[in-house]
Design a protein around this nucleic acid. Structure first.
Length: 440
RNA sequence: UCCCCGAUAGCUCAACGGUAGAGCGUCUGACUGUUAAUCAGAAUGUUCCAGGUUCGAAUCCUGGUCGGGGAGCCA
């Protein structure tokens, strides 16, 4: 016989007055003499089930008393509106079936430290804030994909095992690949997605990417998910327009569909509500000036000479001057990837932009117009010390019907951290991979 | 890789170089409106590891392990 429930908690209002069976886990339990209160969660929400001793069999009352935190059970009862209930409804219990016991569940409703929680990540994902956070992550992903699909993009996935470095030779995870030598886990799908762009016009890839950076900060993971659209015939300016529409669509959809989750996380949504195009744009040069004029406002945000890349304190300072995400465009080519198109009026800067999230969440998107001239591209590959033979297929894309084109990559976890107001990126993915953590 | 901080009960933490403790959780009992309930009682320790100083080390010193915060790099 099926153990499936006959109702879910999220839609319990539809069952007012009916007798239903819910299936889930005990979030919390309080006893008060001949009365047992059970907070039941089923993944869609939580509800209080009330067990009166006089209303149930002795066995059922005994079962209710035995329930411990995270016991799995099926509870049958009638749905009753009650002003005292947190969600507006309670379940008057008639029967309880214990499905799985739970002894000494380690995560209690009290305080815990980071190390303990990360060590129990496989259980921590049940806790209300983590649950809310991961639901927002799922919404970010769904919103991103569905929006792109509606705009005529085709999902075109890139390989995870690759033979060469896409962006640089360091920071790669290596693994053996049969008799063909070393394979590397992809840092980006961008080069491959450019090939798809030549087939479909507008494509995106979506998947995990890997960077063996020895970064130990709240904004870094060694394995993170990136969505990377690429558009044929689009220039740098078209690219920024696409990005601001994309980001605001995701944010607005989360505001609509994740109200409860944002409330649970106590997210101040006023800054998210302002996230409507157009986003402000400043050039790298203007950003340098802004940093100089406001030095001292953020620790470590000291003035930089032209040509140096920003550190994270600089990004925080720049972002703090705007009430929505801000584009910083036209960085010096020397600090950016080899494939970025130079500005025709100023060849020393690239037709690229980073999108910085407000409130110190840092760069959520990096994008650029790509070089479409085969000779210039080959020259840049050599200048970066890369092996031209490895890039013959990539150069082919410029030899057969090359067009100006642009694209960008958005980090799912950083975007989720910003939207949810989560300080640390490790909570925005079910199982974060970090410099000093690979368990569980 | 570099800088800073930490490790004591299941958890969060206290303990001046001098008997290792509290709150929560757990277990037992009471209670018909609790929701981090309340009240009464009980059990619970390789003080991260290895050396050293000392009459005596959780405490001081050296080395290591594990973790946290930050930098650089990046999304």
């Amino acid at each position: 016989m099926s153990l499936l429930p006959t109702a879910t908690i999220r839609t319990i209002a539809q069952h007012e007055g009916q007798t239903v069976t819910l299936a889930g886990w005990v979030y919390h339990k309080t006893e008060k003499g001949r009365l047992v209160f059970i907070q039941l969660r089923d993944g869609s929400g939580t509800i209080q089930a009330v067990v009166f001793k006089k209303n149930v069999s002795e066995e059922t009352f005994a079962t209710a008393q035995q329930l411990t935190q995270e016991s799995a059970c099926r509870i049958t009862g009638s749905v009753r509106a009650d002003e005292r209930a947190a969600g507006g409804f309670e379940l008057d219990v008639s029967e309880i079936e214990l499905i799985g016991t739970s002894q000494n569940y380690p995560i209690t409703p009290k305080e815990h430290g980071v190390e303990f929680l990360m060590q129990h990540r496989h259980l921590w994902v049940r806790s209300s804030k983590q649950h809310a956070l991961l639901r927002i992550r799922a919404e970010v992903i769904a919103a991103a994909q569905e929006w792109l699909n509606e705009q005529g993009f085709v999902r075109f996935d890139s390989p995870i095992l690759t033979a060469t470095a896409a962006e640089g030779t360091t920071n790669l995870f290596a693994t053996e690949y049969f008799d063909l030598g070393t394979a590397y886990l992809a840092q980006t799908g961008q080069l491959y997605v450019e090939s798809g762009m030549m087939s479909f016009g507008r494509v995106y890839c979506f998947g995990p990417t890997f960077r063996a950076e020895k970064s130990k900060t709240r904004r870094h993971l060694t394995e993170f998910w990136m969505i990377e659209p690429e558009v044929a015939f689009a220039d740098h300016y078209d690219n920024m327009v696409l990005q601001e529409q994309f980001v605001s669509a995701i944010v607005q959809r989360c505001l609509e569909r994740c109200k409860r989750e944002l409330e649970i996380l106590e997210r101040d949504t006023s800054t998210l509500e302002k996230c409507i195009p157009p986003f402000p744009r400043i050039t790298y040069d203007e950003a340098l000036k802004l940093i100089e004029e406001n030095q001292g406002q953020v620790e470590g945000a000291t003035p930089l000479p032209w040509g140096e890349d920003f550190g994270s304190p600089h990004e925080t300072l720049i972002a703090s001057k705007f009430d929505r995400p801000v584009f910083v465009e036209k960085y010096p080519s020397a600090v950016k990837a080899f494939y970025m198109q130079p500005d025709p009026n100023r060849p020393e800067v690239a037709m690229c932009a980073d999108l910085l999230a407000p409130e110190g969440y840092g760069e959520i998107i990096g994008g650029s117009q790509r070089i479409h001239d085969p000779e210039l591209l080959e020259q840049r590959i050599r200048e970066h010390g890369l092996n031209v033979d490895d890039y013959q297929w990539y150069l082919d894309l410029r030899r057969y019907g090359s067009v100006p084109h642009s694209g960008f990559g958005m980090g799912i976890e950083r975007c989720t951290a910003w939207i949810s107001g989560t300080r640390h990126i490790r909570e925005t993915i079910p199982f974060p991979r970090q410099l000093y953590r690979i368990y569980p």
